[in-house]
Structures are given as structure tokens and as C-alpha cells.
């Protein structure tokens, strides 16, 4: 969609954004979000300046209170140390029908407005699944390079398949709320397995303790070494201290009432412990490597596909699609033909 605004040159925009000019940061984010060669050149300019921020992902089903929790986490970081700046990237879904979106996460973060040390950006998924937009990782890089110390990503909250955030964040907080699914839900694979910290929000509501219990039971089944299972006796919510070598991280289960600011300090303490754990353990390095390799793979997949389709041409692609529909060729052979054609071109 065309926009009548004049677009400034990327290098100048990057310079001003790196100096912390808020307007330039905002405009650079838009350029990165819109993608294309200009976005890539901007990202290669800022990449050396990234890797300093602490990146926290917050995910969980809709209605569990993610936005409110994110707002409270940011508020407490700002209160605990005024020199610490916080960037927030809040992702909401794009309508698959119109391509439009209503991004409403700022409503729950109004306490933060007016604070110069906070920068909130709303993003639409623009067709990507997995809880983040395709460019969320890159938008986080812009905030990282611009000098924000802590960056909090809030995912869409579509549910169980929302694991993209684990590829972007250092620490993933999974938010649950009482009444959102029973024990069977808790055992299901997927979202809970990416949790570094589990938060049961709205803990003043009925059923909070049984949600905590279900999560404990699930975690004990999943990760506790033998001898640490407490049959029938639930341990209180304790935060594990940074562990000795070769120990696995045990996700703490914390209760919060985000709307009243209760329990947020414990969340922030747990984030700090997890960060110390990653720094001390080989897992931290492994994660960074895994993340880099997955990011590279994603970029390769996209660019290779683009190039292949360009060199093959739409006519040939459409002809093959027709054949697949008519069952005169199977999709695997069609893909093989396209790859051969691209190599020859």
C-alpha cells in the first residue's frame, strides 16, 4: 500500500536511532517491519550493536492478563532502577480476511505513558503463525541496538503452538490463569515446555491453587530428577537459586495479581536468576547457537524460496499447481521439477 510520506535514507535513520532519537527508532522499526532489501541493509548496520539487552518473552492464552503483567514488569524495572530503560514489543493478530488489525495492548499499559525510559511498539502478525510477526525478532534488534536494557515481547496468545518466542527471548514467561484448562491441558506438549518461568496470574480467583498444583505435577513429571518427586506433597513456590554445573533449570511457578501489582518482584527476581543460570551454564551458549542457526535457516528458507520462484516464473508454477490439482503429478515431483528448472535457469 503506497504511503505519501517521504522515506529518509537508511544509514542516516540508523545513525539517529542508535543515538536514541525516539522518532527515528519508531521509523526504523517501520522500515524493518515492512521488510525488503532496505530492511536487510538496516539490520546489517545495527547488528554489531545488538546482543546487549535482556530479552524477556511473555506468552499465554488470551485473557490470562499478559498485557497487564508486561506493563507491571516494565513499571517495576523502571522503579527499581531509573537508569534501566525498557522496550516493549506487543504482538496482536492480523485478520486473515482483511489484512488489517486492531492492536490494543497499550490499553493495559497506560501507566507507562509519559515515561521517557519506556518505548512501546504494537505489531500485527501480518500473516505469520506461532505467536510473533515474522519481523518481531528484527524489531527487537532495533530496540536492543538503540540501547534499551530490557526488552519485553508480548505474544499474540493464540495458545498451544506459540513457541516462536522461545527463539527470540532469553527468558520465556508463560502466563496461566485459574480456570484456563485442566490438568490434561497442562500435560499437553508445546507451550509449557518453553516456559522458563510459569506465572499463575489472577491468583486471587477461585482455583488458583489447583492451577498451581496442576503445573507442579506436570513439571515434576517432565523434568525432576529421581528422588526429588514429592509424592502427594506439593512444594511451596520457591525460586531455584542459580544452579551448579550440569543442573537443569527448574521453572519456578509464581502467583501474581498483575492488576494490583502483586507478586511482580518475585517474577523479576526469577528472571534475574534465570539470566544468571544461563550465563553460568553451557545451556546459555547452546541456546544462543541454536537461536542463531534457526534464524539463519528461516532467512535462507525465505530468500531461497523467493529466488526460486522468481527464476521459475509464475506461469510454470501455476501450470504445475494445476497439474497437482488434477492429480496428474504429485506435489513432491512438482517441487522437484521446479528445483531442477531453477538450477538450469
Amino acid at each position: 500500500m503506497a504511503n505519501s510520506r517521504l522515506l529518509e535514507a537508511v544509514p542516516a535513520l540508523v545513525d539517529r536511532a542508535l543515538q536514541g532519537d525516539r522518532r527515528s527508532i519508531a521509523r526504523l522499526i517501520s522500515r524493518v517491519e515492512d521488510g525488503g532489501p532496505e530492511a536487510w541493509s538496516a539490520l546489517s548496520l545495527i547488528y554489531p550493536r545488538t546482543g546487549r539487552a535482556q530479552i524477556i518473552g511473555v506468552t499465554g492464552a488470551p485473557g490470562t492478563g499478559k498485557s497487564t503483567l508486561v506493563g507491571e514488569i516494565a513499571k517495576l524495572y523502571r522503579k527499581s532502577s531509573p537508569a534501566l530503560t525498557v522496550g516493549i514489543v506487543a504482538v496482536d493478530p492480523t485478520s486473515p480476511f482483511s489484512g488489517g488489525a486492531v492492536l490494543g495492548d497499550r490499553i493495559r499499559m497506560r501507566d507507562l505513558s509519559g515515561d521517557e525510559g519506556v518505548f512501546i511498539r504494537s505489531m500485527a502478525t501480518r500473516g505469520s503463525l506461532g505467536g510473533l510477526a515474522r519481523s518481531t525478532t528484527d524489531v527487537v534488534k532495533v530496540l536492543d541496538a538503540a540501547g534499551f536494557d530490557v526488552i519485553v515481547i508480548e505474544t499474540v496468545g493464540a495458545g498451544q503452538s506459540e513457541i516462536e518466542v522461545a527463539r527470540t527471548a532469553d527468558t520465556v514467561i508463560v502466563v496461566e490463569a485459574p480456570g484456563f484448562g485442566d490438568e490434561v491441558q497442562a500435560i499437553k506438549a508445546g507451550i509449557l515446555e518453553i516456559a522458563d518461568i510459569l506465572v499463575v496470574n489472577k491468583a486471587d480467583r477461585d482455583g488458583a491453587q489447583s492451577t498451581v498444583n496442576a503445573l507442579h505435577a506436570m513439571l515434576d513429571l517432565g523434568t525432576a530428577p529421581h528422588g526429588l518427586l514429592h509424592h502427594g506433597v506439593l512444594m511451596p513456590s520457591v525460586i531455584p537459586t542459580p544452579a551448579k554445573s550440569d543442573e537443569r533449570w527448574q521453572p519456578p511457578i509464581l502467583k501474581t495479581i498483575a492488576s494490583q501489582g502483586h507478586g511482580i518482584d518475585e517474577v523479576i527476581t526469577a528472571v534475574a536468576h534465570h539470566r544468571a543460570f544461563l550465563a553460568a551454564q553451557p545451556e546459555g551458549q547452546q541456546r544462543a547457537r541454536l537461536r542463531a542457526s534457526m534464524e539463519l535457516e528461516t532467512i535462507l528458507r525465505e530468500t531461497l524460496l523467493d529466488r526460486l520462484l522468481q527464476s521459475v516464473g509464475a506461469d510454470r508454477l501455476n501450470a504445475l499447481i494445476d497439474q497437482v490439482v488434477a492429480r496428474t503429478i504429485d506435489p513432491y515431483s512438482a517441487a522437484d521439477q521446479l528445483q531442477r528448472a531453477a538450477v538450469q535457469a
Binding site: 492480523t94 480476511f97 482483511s98 489484512g99 488489517g100 488489525a101 490494543g104 497499550r106 490499553i107 497506560r110
Partner: peptide, 13 residues
Amino acid sequence: ALRDAGMEVIYTG
């Protein structure tokens, strides 16, 4: 309405 027209709308409350 703007969403349905394909725009990204930030609503602040």
C-alpha cells in the same frame, strides 16, 4: 471499520 479495510489500528483506550 479501519481494520476491515486492511489497516493496522492502534487503540489506546
